[in-house]
Write a protein that binds this DNA or RNA. Sequence first.
DNA 1: CATTTGACAGGAA
DNA 2: CTTCCTGCCAAAT
Length: 103
Amino acid sequence: MPKKTFTEKVYDVVKKIPVGKVLTYSDVARLAGNPGAARAVGTAMKNNPDMSIIPCHRVVGSDGKMHGYAFGGESVKVSLLKKEDVAMNGTTVDLKKSRWKKK
DNA sequence: CATTTGACAGGAA
DNA sequence: CTTCCTGCCAAAT
């Protein structure tokens, strides 16, 4: 079987994030098979082939905030996530409750 | 093939 | 809470 590149796996994982949940770059890296490659996840994201199918706003930093990209601003991201039933804590995502984890 | 860059994380001050 | 430094990995040049 064709071995997917790390980037491909990242897209696959991100696209599978359910509504109301978020993942940190570290988590995406881990699910993609490369724990610790959080930075590489960001690299892949900015290289993303289809931003429309990749809910980048559901991928946040370890602090539950956007580090670089957002749909125009943190406020927009917060509003959007709130709309998606994501547990928020002010301007930050409540990873304690909204972190997507497989059970 | 080597160097630089970047949408990161975690710890220290 | 903010700022700086180090470690990590992949893609781009």
